[in-house]
Nucleic acid binder design. Sequence first.
DNA 1: CTGAAAGCGCTTACAG
DNA 2: CTGAAAGCGCTTACAG
Lengths: 352, 352
Amino acid sequence: VSSIVDVARLAGVSPATVSRVLSSSTYPVSETTRQRVVDAARALDFVPNELARGLLKSHARVIGVIVHDITDPYFADIARGVEDAAAAADFLVIVCSSDRDATREESYVRLLRSIRAAAVVFAGTGIDDPALNAAVARHTDAIRAYGGAVVRLSPHAFGAPDVGVDNAAGMASLVEALGALGHRRIAYVSGPEQLFVVRDRLAGYRAGLARARLKPDAALVSTGAFTVEGGAAGLDDLLARGASFTAVAFANDLMALGGLQRLAERGIDVPGDVSVAGFDDIRTASQVTPSLTSVRLPLHELGRRGFLHAERILAGGRPRRQVLPTEVVLRASTARPKPGLETDSRPMAAAS
Amino acid sequence: VSSIVDVARLAGVSPATVSRVLSSSTYPVSETTRQRVVDAARALDFVPNELARGLLKSHARVIGVIVHDITDPYFADIARGVEDAAAAADFLVIVCSSDRDATREESYVRLLRSIRAAAVVFAGTGIDDPALNAAVARHTDAIRAYGGAVVRLSPHAFGAPDVGVDNAAGMASLVEALGALGHRRIAYVSGPEQLFVVRDRLAGYRAGLARARLKPDAALVSTGAFTVEGGAAGLDDLLARGASFTAVAFANDLMALGGLQRLAERGIDVPGDVSVAGFDDIRTASQVTPSLTSVRLPLHELGRRGFLHAERILAGGRPRRQVLPTEVVLRASTARPKPGLETDSRPMAAAS
DNA sequence: CTGAAAGCGCTTACAG
DNA sequence: CTGAAAGCGCTTACAG
C-alpha cells in the first residue's frame, strides 16, 4: 500500500506538493508539477489515509447516528436520509443500534467520540434515565469541545429536538379525524412511559379528544411495548377489561400492526367492527391489508435535515430549531362506525 | 479535550506508561503506578483518539457493510447481524447503501479503504457489470494488501459467497411445495437479470418444476424490478398476456407484496383464486394479510457469520465457505388450488 | 511555486 | 518496571 512519500518519490517532488495537489488545498501549484503528481498517484493507485488526515483536523469526516434499531423501518428511513445527505457532502455515516439499552448507547457515543466523529445524531427519543443521560452528556460535551456537533431528532431529557415533528399535534389531528368520522369512543394504546415521545403522543391523544369534544376515559387507555407484540398486548388489555370502543389509535405503526393481527385472530372486522390507526406511516403501513391509517412523518427528510443541521454547526453557525409538518393519512383500516355502535357514545357534558 | 500527555503529566509518569495501562498491552506496570494513571485518566475524562491508534496499526477497528438499501428489511436484518457480532468484538460498523449504483458502490469501497477499514462485507448480490467489478476489485485488492478482510454474503462476479444460502435450492423447495399442494401451473416473476442472485433463483424455479414433474412454460415467467412496484408490474405482465396459473412465486418478498396488492386491486382472491409466495421471509411477510408464504433465510445469522468470517481472516486464518439452511414457510397466501382450476393442468409428457 | 520541518496523538522497540 | 525517542501518514505554517 503506497503512501504520499511513494507518490512524491515517483513524481520527483516533495510530499508537501503531493498533499497540495491531492487534497482540497487551494495552494498554487504549477500545472506541469500537478500533472506529474496526478500521474504518479494514479500509477500507484494511491488513496490517502483518512486516519492520518483526521488526526490533523479536529475531527474525522464521520457522522454517527444513534438509532434504537436499524431493522425498525422508522429508523431505517431516518438513517437513510442522513446517509444520502452526508454522502453528498463526502461524510461517512455510522449507524448504531442501541436497543434503547443504556450501556450500549453510552458505549456507542463513547466510540464515536474516540474516533472524533464530526457529529452524532440522536434519531430516537430520549429516555427518562438520569444515569444514562449523565453519562451521555459527558461524552456529548467532549464532542462539542473538539468541535463536533450534536443533533437531536426527537424530544429528550434536555428539551425539544433540533429538527423534529410535533408529535402531540400530529396525534391530536389523528384523533380529531377519527372523531370527524363519527367515532365517540376512541381507545388509545400507549407506549413505554419513560420515552419522551410516548408522553407527547399521549398528550396529543388527550388534546384530540378535547378538540373532538369527547370526554377522556381512563378505561379506554392501555399500554404496551413500542413493538408489534406490544401493540397486540395493549389491545388484549383493553379487550380483557371489557372496554367498548369503535376506534383505537396506537402510539406507533408497529403497535397498530400488532393490533391488526390480534383483531384478525379474534375475528373482529377492521374497519367494520373497529377502526384502527397507527402513527409514523412506515412503509409497511401502506403494504398491509387493510392498509393502515396513520400519521405521516417525513422521516427521510428528518434525517436529511438532521445532517444539514450538523453541517451548519460544524461551519460555525447556530442553526435554529425546525419543526417538520405531519399529515394524517386515512386508509382502509378506518371508516365511519356502524350505526348501532355509534349510539354507544358519551359526549362531553359541557360543550364549551 | 485531553490527550495522553495530559494524563501522563497529571499522573506524574511518561506517556508510554499511560499507554501501557490504558491500552490492551500486557506490558508489566507496577500496581501503584497503574492506579495513579487510572485515576488521572478518570479525572480528565480521557478517551484515547482511535484515529491515532489506527494510524499505527495496519487498519482501524471498523467493519464496512455494503448493502443495496438499508431501508430494505432484507438488508437491515443482515446489517443488524453484522453489527451485533461486531459490537461484541469492539468493532464499529459502517453500513453503506449503494442503491446498486456503480459509482456509489465504488466510492463507498474507496472510502472504506481510505479509513483502512478492517473488513468490508458485501451483503448484496453481485452485479454483472465488468467496469464496476474491475474498479471494486482494485480497492478490495488494496484492502487485502493492508491486511483487511473482504467477505461476500451473496453470489458475485468472482464466484460463490463466503457465507451464504443456496438460493437455487431454496426456490426449488418452494416450487416443489407448491406442486405438492396440487398446483400444476405455477407462474414465476423474476427480477433483474444482471443480479447473480436472480439467476440462481430462476434456476431454482426451473429445478423445482422438474422435481414436481411439471413442464416449464415461458408464458408463465415474467420479470420486474426487485421492489414492490416491480412485483406488481411483473404480475401485470403475466395477466396482460393472458397467462393462466393457480400459483405464482416471486423472486423476493418485496415483489410478492406488490403482487398481493395488485391482486387485491383486481379483485382476485388470495389464496382462493391464486396462491402467492415470496422469498427471503422479511419481517413484513408475516405481518401482512393474508400472511405471505415465503422461504426463510437466516438473515441476522448471515450477518453475524459474515463478521465472524472476517474476524478469522484478520486473525490470519483461512476460514471456509459456509452455506446456511433455508426453510419453506407456508402461510395463508397459499392453499390447494380450486378443483375447477386444478384440471387446467399440463403434466409433463414423460414421467421419468 | 516548492520544500524542509514540525506536529496531530498515540504505540513500541530499545535502553536502562 | 519506567522513560526517551522514533514513527504511523498526512498537512501546514514558515522559508525561500
